[in-house]
Amino acid sequence: MRVEADQPKCVASGQCVLAAPDVFDQDDDGIVVVLDDHPEESTHDDVREAAAICPAAAIRLADK
């Protein structure tokens, strides 16, 4: 799984950090930062949930 975040689209709701804290964080302004763009398989469900609940649809997932 490859994780990308579109920072200009991010609205700093923080939902991804709550859903998958090992994969997402926020910068000083609350904007999304991807900590691990190829996260371990054990986190994939949480990462999919983060992408699903992102209100700005700013998280993109690819197969590899």
Partner: peptide, 17 residues
């Protein structure tokens, strides 16, 4: 909207809250 909202997002970041 984004210009104004981003001026107040920092204190609501998860770690700060």
């Amino acid at each position: 909207h984004a210009r104004l909202r981003r001026m107040v997002t920092a204190p609501f970041a998860i770690k700060k809250v």
